[in-house]
Amino acid sequence: MILVTGASGQLGRLVIHSLLEKTDASHIIAAVRNPDSVKDLAEKGVQVRHADYAQPDTLVSAFAGVEKLLLISSSEVGQRTPQHTNVINAAKEAGVSLIAYTSILQAVSSPLALAAEHIETEKRLAESDVPYVLLRNGWYSENYTANIGMALEHGAVLGSAGEGKFSTASRVDYAEAAAVVLTSDNQAGKVYELAGDNAFTLTEYASAISKESGTTVVYQNLPETEYAQVLTQVGLPEGLATILANSDIGASKGGLFNDSKTLSTLIGRPTTSIEDSIKAAL
């Protein structure tokens, strides 16, 4: 049995769909806070169980009979370490044979503030005695393409990354990689640095939007604090805005660049190009 936490989320749902192409639905469990949110998966034969990272009592029962578990990192930045620890402890108690964890690219050396909770989770995994594999995911292309409408409206992509390079891939790419690992043998102890095949700067990203849309879009580089202020002005919580601005600074230092092509090797095909992701968003 393979269990996917956060199965109603953007990545989790895609992992389930990829798993359905590789194994029978009866071998897949979708763990979610709200079972009603994945009725479509239940209709495909996927077993649905209630599980909440913040409620340890729900986790041990949800993990009963599970051989492999995908721990998708919590979306609640600042609460990730205790929530992930709850999952790891419950997996150990339930006798799970393998935990796959979605960490961050080059976690140990990453200059991004976001890496701190991932590093702590990796430490908790190492201390747990539960076999584990690390899926250190790079940036999702959708982190940028989701905001193409705003870029077109204002004629600009904003950021603080300077000429830093982003080795992004689509969520589908990362989801497929997770499914490959979960359905393969001898994964314990492996660390996968996962990133897109072709990197780009935000200047190049803006140029690609211009080319695909026919509307001129330029990249405007801002100081970190100013970029964070802009993000709060468009409605993001202050904490999230600060983290995103810091992530751009981290990218300027190489934190989101990786040319190993580990991801494309794992999934057996080239990763989705930023141009194709832009076309899909348009």
Rank of each mutant, 00 (worst) to 15 (best):
A251W: 05
S210K: 06
A228D: 13
H84P: 10
A175E: 11
A100P: 09
S18Q: 15
S252Y: 06
H17C: 00
F166C: 06
K68S: 08
L3S: 05
Q10F: 08
Q106W: 07
Q233C: 05
G12R: 01
D276T: 13
L69W: 13
A175V: 12
Q220V: 12
S61E: 09
Y192R: 06
P223W: 14
D24N: 15
S273G: 07
K253V: 00
V191P: 05
V130C: 07
D24E: 15
N147I: 08
S37W: 10
V38G: 06
T201R: 01
A116R: 15
Y101Q: 03
A31T: 06
A208S: 13
Q229C: 04
S37K: 15
M150T: 14
T225N: 12
E204F: 09
R136Q: 15
N198W: 09
S213V: 06
A100N: 10
D276S: 14
A179G: 04
S103M: 05
F257V: 10
T232H: 02
T203W: 00
Y144V: 03
G214V: 01
A113R: 12
L125V: 08
R33M: 06
G268L: 14
A161H: 00
A280E: 11
A54S: 12
V108E: 14
S141P: 08
A195H: 01
A281M: 00
K123H: 12
G214K: 09
N34E: 08
S210E: 04
I249P: 06
V130M: 04
S260P: 04
K39G: 14
A241K: 08
L11E: 04
F166G: 03
Q106Y: 02
Q106V: 04
K22V: 02
Q79E: 13
A30M: 03
Y132F: 14
S170I: 00
L135P: 08
L244M: 15
G149S: 08
A7Y: 10
V60R: 03
A113S: 09
A156N: 03
L135T: 07
N86W: 02
N186S: 10
Q55T: 14
L231V: 12
R124F: 02
A62S: 06
